[in-house]
Design a protein around this nucleic acid. Structure first.
Lengths: 168, 168
DNA sequence: CTTGGAATGTCAACAAGGCTGACATAAAGT
DNA sequence: ACTTTATGTCAGCCTTGTTGACATTCCAAG
């Protein structure tokens, strides 16, 4: 349990002590629970789970995306994604169009019903995020995002950045 | 999809736009993956999962905690926790002692082997957190924790704060 | 042109870890 | 004595991960 972070007596490296790091770890754990709580409630009422939310979110974010692209964003196996996608398609929330250039590919779109659910989910999630942001102010929000970005795996950061570029 | 955050033309409320909120949401998603990636790798090698990690973490954090307390921290059912706890006890990583004052309670402790695994897991997780913290500096870290705390459900924040008090 | 390999997506079966419900036991509390 | 609390266990279900097998499509080398 030795403190490997700060070489004692140093200026402002006290934020790197094991204790501070553990605070960060536990904050992530408890906050993520809150982060998913509202959508989870909405979804379970409708017989869906978090996996459906993720698919819906990223299809909405990049309409026409292929299954393969979604796969690499979500980091699950194609079989796992396929099951979720299957139910969303069968329930008429997602439309899957065979690619025109490459007929092996399926391009994914939200239907109107899909967009309705997406909006319901993201509104709930944004409300919590907005409330948190408002409580702490813009500087804290900048720090929040900086830490999160620095914590991502590099290939996840790639996806994150690509979405940023497309979205703005 | 209207921007409910900033009443347009306002001073510095632009950090509350739907777009900024969505950035925060996606940052949480991708960062949480990184956050759990290293422990997940270690655990799956040993035939354990994230549920075991959570139990080990909080038993280490509050040695002698009761099953009931752990239950409310983790937010799962006793059946679900029991399954995980059973394997940890059988594998000699956790010890369950009958309470002295109240003999209905079981007090949970890590064995030496349990502490070894805990240390391996938390070291990996701290390393990533430390690297992120170091990259962005102390002010960003403060903001990071402020947002996370504001995002927690109040009963989770209760647990978070209680751990803080005990730990310092 | 054909044919073999790579890419893409689907189906089937299994495992982990959530959940509910029912029930047992022991210890406290009234 | 009776009730409540803390814990454990059995059975069964669901979501969402996994692997393996397979079909389709595309492309490039022969």
């Amino acid at each position: 349990m030795a403190d490997t972070g700060a070489p004692a007596g140093n200026e402002t490296l006290l934020f790197l002590t094991d204790d501070q790091l553990r605070k960060g770890i536990e904050a992530m754990f408890f906050a993520y629970r809150g982060f998913t709580a509202d959508p989870d409630r909405i979804l379970s009422d409708k017989g869906y789970g978090r996996a459906h939310h993720r698919a819906i979110h990223f299809i909405n974010r990049s309409p026409g995306t292929t299954v393969n692209n979604l796969l690499s964003i979500l980091g699950v196996t194609k079989q796992s994604l396929n099951r979720v996608l299957r139910t969303l398609i069968d329930d008429g929330l997602v439309e899957s169009r065979v690619g025109t250039r490459d007929k092996r590919e399926r391009h994914l779109f939200l239907t109107e019903a899909g967009e309705t659910l997406e909006s319901e989910l993201s509104t709930a999630q944004r409300n919590r995020m907005r409330s948190a942001f408002r409580q702490v102010g813009p500087e804290a929000v900048v720090g929040f995002r900086q830490v999160l970005e620095a914590m991502m795996d590099s290939d996840m950061r790639r996806h994150y950045v690509r979405l940023r570029e497309a979205g703005e």
